[in-house]
Every structure is written in structure tokens, then in C-alpha cells.
Amino acid sequence: MNTRPDSTNDLIRWNAFREGSESAFAALYSAHYRHLMNYGRRFGADVATAEDAIHDVFIDLWNYRRTLTQPQSVQSYLLRSFRNRLVNQLAERQRRFAETDVGELFGLLSPEPSAEERLVEDGLNQEQQEQVQAAFATLSPRQQEVLYLRYFTDLGYDEICAVMGITYNTARTQLYQALTALRKRLQPNWPVLLLLIGLFEK
């Protein structure tokens, strides 16, 4: 199971790093690297491209630490800076092929999983796993991204909007639609339960 960065620790480290603490800087990096890397790969970025964007973000943080303020959420701030950079880089590359909105590249399953990567213990059998993946595939990129951020981070809707550059209502609607779509696809198979859902769902 992946661990979420702790927001209180984040703020303590953030403030220490702004005063020049290198160990706090290293701790911030360690706490957020996995999340930024995972997020980046879902835009179709390879490991090297994603790492370059992460490095750019942290090099700027260090160079401008004296002028930084304290963000509401460190994780939201990092995800936003990282997303902007990555999207710019990918857009640059994409321009040669077509006019694509890079936000539309997001996929819960990153497009190029390397062969040696072992997926984590997830408690599902093969059939269920395929059922869920098929359900994810029916969602729009935006819906997948909101779902991803809502599940893998502790960000509120306002922070998710800030990361993705969308409005509060859009974020809520996207997630609501995603969940409704998923619910239709992820119906458990036995009839009794279907009856129960019919009885109790509003």
C-alpha cells in the first residue's frame, strides 16, 4: 500500500527548508518523489522525463526558497508545479504530431508499464481485476485524473481544482460522473444483492 505524505510533517519541513535546511529539503523530496513519479507516468511520461520535471521543480524550490510563502497544502503545491512543467514538456513534444490537449493524455494505467514492474498486492482475483480495468477505460481522462487525485492524495476538492486548473464544480461533477459510471460497471453479480441495491439506492 502506498503511503500518503503527512501534511503536518510537510509544513514543518517546508518551513525548515525555506530557512536553508538541506535535510528538510531531502526529506520533502523523499516524501513526495513516489507520488510525483506515479502521477507523471500516467500522463504517458517515461521515467526519465518525469524525473527531469521533478528535478526542475525542486531545483527552483531551492533557488527561490527565500521568496517562497507557505502554501495551504505542500502536496497540492508540488503536484501543481510538477503538472505544469510536465504538461509543457509533453506539449512541446506533442506539437510536432498534432494539437492535443495534454490533460487529455491522463490514464489511470500508465501507457508504458515496464515488463519487470510487479503490480502491488491488491486483493482482487484475475477476473475482478479485468472487470475494474475495463471500467476505468470507460472514464474520460479528466474523470480518471480527478479519481486518481481524490484516491491517492488527501487533497480536498478545492486543492484538486488548483492542481488541475479546473473549477470546483467541474471537479465535483467529474468525480460524481466517474463514480456513477463505475458503479454501473462494477455491479456485484449475485441477484440478492442487486435486489438490495434496487431497494435502497436513492
Binding site: 500500500m1 502491488v120 482482487l124 444483492l193
Partner: peptide
């Protein structure tokens, strides 16, 4: 809540399996 629990179970399993461990 059984349907909710079952859906949440599939959601957790499905999402966690997309995580690249580092």
C-alpha cells in the same frame, strides 16, 4: 451498504494495482 463495500473493494484493488512501487 453491502454494494458500496463491494464497489469500494474493487475500486481500492483496481487503483492500488496501477501504483508503481518505487
Amino acid at each position: 451498504q453491502q454494494a458500496t463495500i463491494e464497489q469500494a473493494r474493487l475500486l481500492v484493488g483496481g487503483l492500488e494495482s496501477t501504483w508503481h512501487p518505487i
